[in-house]
Write a protein that binds this DNA or RNA. Structure first.
Length: 479
RNA sequence: GGCGCGGUACCCAAGCGGCCUAAGGGAAUGGUCUGCAAAACCAUCAUUCGUCGGUUCGAAUCCGACCCGCGCCUCCA
């Protein structure tokens, strides 16, 4: 098996992936800030993280994956206050929506889903460690990190601190800092704001400290993998490194992976441009969860993904093809025997699939391997050269494929219903459909094709596609 | 200005020195199959890889310059 290569932001290069402990991977991924519904750009990153975790598991690693939910920050405090709610009361709705969205997109639950507000003590302890080592200073009740004391600052984002010392840029932070780049570990409460009463005084944590404290609590002082969106590289991850490594004297994370952004129609998604979408916006327009997942998954994570409705339709077609093939394997009748050639092609597809993913999670390559095998197998089936004994290995391949892509299961309608979107064809039950198909079959027998076509058309209008098979049975599916 | 992605067919996209007269998918057109469909299959769809130079026996792939798109450089995945 080919060794896994990952692009490490730290070195700017592809590196062979070798975890600290053979066979075990400890991974931390930055999750959402739950001040609103997450948007599809967020999910581009989360789907990437999910595919990474799925691939590592497929490769047999014992994985401990932690994803945080940032449920305290300026926006949350402001929005909660405006809504007259406390922090938990305000964020709960978005936390639940996030969980639902993950389920809908087949994003697996990590081993630990954790919230910042459950870990204030851990953050306080980390800040105290930094205080002992004099990496901090206090000012007007807030505690800041003194970047000047950490010589390696900038190693992740390659930022050059010379020339942008205090005063180089306008510092409009409300608090007093020694240097413009210094960041708050702990923020003094403002009147009326929610705060925690702690050993380091009243207040609330700065943004960056949560990830350092939580990651180290669950995964140890040196993680194998840390990931997030590219925008987090600076300042968030840079600051995490500064805090963590100053406190422990050890490398914080060995591999840093950053997902490029999703664009909509070639532009940054933003509310003001009117190109801002949540998952729910897409479902309301009738797009399937699986198509959204595939659209997000099929462009490798280090490439900006230009999201368009056309790309969604393309993904939907891809899903159709994959599922049609899976159905054909499931339901088709094949001659007895087993062919050498097909077995070899399947092994080849498995190899290409694995190699693609091992190559810095090149999902486009992995997907192409599946398509290539499908074409070869379909051709063989059309010629009756695909035999019964070829079915199991082919299905095995699809199962492997789906362990990472997770789009084959035909459960979009249920997922949408669970979220309260009634699918178009909700009116017809399976029994009613079967009844209409029986009527049509009867009409066909009488050679009353007009009547038969009328039924087909009626079903089509309600989203049911019929397929006549050679042996006279009729397969159907919901579009 | 600094740092970083990227420009490959109508669209998405792989490729990263010879196996490339460039994977895979979507769309389209024609065809096979079908009572008609659907699915599947076949054919057509880039002698060319943003532009111009250079290196090389050989370049989409390396080097240089330029053009264009995008992101980060104050809490945005």
């Amino acid at each position: 098996m080919r060794e896994i290569q990952l692009h490490n932001t730290l070195s700017g290069k592809l590196e062979p992936f070798v975890p600290q402990k053979p066979g075990e991977v400890r991974m931390y991924t930055c999750g959402p800030t739950v001040y609103d519904y997450a948007h599809i750009g967020n999910y581009r990153t989360f789907v990437f993280q999910d595919m990474l975790r799925r691939f590592l598991k497929l490769r047999g690693f014992q994985l401990t994956h932690v994803m945080n939910l940032t449920d305290v920050d300026d926006r949350i405090i402001a929005n909660a206050a405006a809504a007259g709610k406390d922090i938990r009361g305000y964020t709960e709705k978005f936390v639940q929506a996030f969980f639902e969205d993950c389920k809908t997109l087949s994003i697996e639950a990590p081993e630990h889903w954790i919230r910042a507000t459950d870990h204030i003590d851990d953050m306080v302890k980390l800040i105290q460690r930094l205080q002992e080592k004099t990496f901090t200073y206090s000012s007007e009740g807030s505690i800041y990190y003194r970047i000047a004391k950490f010589p390696n600052y900038g190693k992740l984002s390659k930022i050059d601190l010379t020339g942008i010392q205090a005063g180089a840029r306008v510092d409009n932070d409300r608090y007093e800092k020694e240097s413009a780049r210094d960041f708050a570990l702990w923020k003094a409460p403002k009147p009326g704001e929610h705060f925690w009463q702690t050993a380091i005084g009243p207040g609330r944590p700065g943004w960056h400290v949560e990830c350092s404290a939580m990651a180290m609590k669950y995964l140890g002082e040196t993680l194998d993998i840390h990931t997030g969106g590219i925008d987090l590289a600076f300042p968030h991850h840079e600051n995490e490194i500064a805090q963590s490594e100053a406190a422990t004297g050890k490398p914080f994370a060995r591999y840093w992976l950053h997902a490029e952004h999703l664009l909509v129609d070639g532009e940054k998604m933003s509310k003001s441009l009117g190109n801002f979408f949540t998952l729910r916006d897409l479902f309301a327009k009738g797009y399937k969860p699986s198509a959204v997942r595939l659209a997000l998954a099929s462009v490798p994570y280090r490439k900006q993904l230009n999201f368009t409705f056309n790309s969604l339709r393309q993904a939907a077609s891809g899903i159709e093809r994959l599922r049609n093939f899976a159905d054909r394997l499931q339901q088709g009748k094949f001659p007895a025997g087993k062919t050498e050639g097909m077995a070899a092609r399947i092994v080849q597809a498995e190899q290409e699939f694995d190699e693609g993913l091992a190559d810095d999670l090149n999902t486009a390559r992995a997907l192409a391997a599946a398509h290539e095998l499908m074409r070869v197998a379909n051709v063989a089936m059309d010629k009756d050269e695909f035999l019964q004994g070829d079915v199991a290995p082919a299905r095995q391949f699809l199962a492997t494929f789906d362990k990472v892509f997770a789009v084959l299961e035909d459960n979009d309608a249920q997922k949408l219903q669970a979220l309260g979107y009634d699918s178009v064809q909700a009116g017809l039950s399976d029994v009613e459909i079967e009844k209409l198909i029986a009527d049509r079959t009867a009409a066909k027998k009488m050679r009353d094709f007009a009547a038969a076509d009328r039924i087909r058309k009626e079903l089509a209008e309600r989203g049911i596609i019929l397929e006549d098979t050679k042996d006279g049975t009729v397969r159907w599916k919901r579009k």
